[in-house]
């Protein structure tokens, strides 16, 4: 993943946001969606994506549906009811974080913080 340290903490929120918008998705579809939205800037690797998905499933935030697609089984993920509530919380936290980072990186943008 590009700038992995910066993105690492937000990976689960990114996944939850995508699932909130798209209903249900499978692993590879998530990686491709992120790549397409960020125009190839952000590439989520298998080593980062699947542990994050399984962790969220373990926490009861994601539910799983398995379907036969062609000649193999495919595992789809979707948000549970708790997952939907948690997505709202995590997105609010992320937005707050981005706002604070913007203020720190570019303080002139926020006149309230000027002395």
């Amino acid at each position: 993943m590009k700038n992995s340290q910066l993105y690492k903490g937000s990976l689960t929120t990114i996944i939850m946001k995508l699932l909130e918008e798209n209903g249900r998705m499978y692993g590879y579809e998530i990686t491709q969606k992120v790549k397409s939205i960020t125009k190839g800037e952000l590439n989520i690797t298998e080593g980062a994506l699947y542990p994050a998905l399984h962790k969220l499933e373990g926490e009861g935030l994601l539910d799983v549906e398995v379907e036969k697609v062609g000649n193999r089984l495919r595992k789809y993920y979707k948000l549970t009811e708790d997952g939907q509530k948690e997505t709202v919380n995590r997105l609010a936290e992320l937005e707050e974080f981005i706002k604070n980072m913007q203020t720190l990186v570019n303080p002139k943008i926020n006149p309230d913080l000027q002395f």
């Binding site: 690797t45 298998e46 080593g47 699947y50 542990p51 399984h54 962790k55 499933e57 373990g58």
Partner: peptide, 20 residues
Amino acid sequence: LHKKELLESNNKFSKIARNK
């Protein structure tokens, strides 16, 4: 390119399954 990542993911998945 990706075998190492897949095996790491396998180990992490096993641990999560164990804890669950």
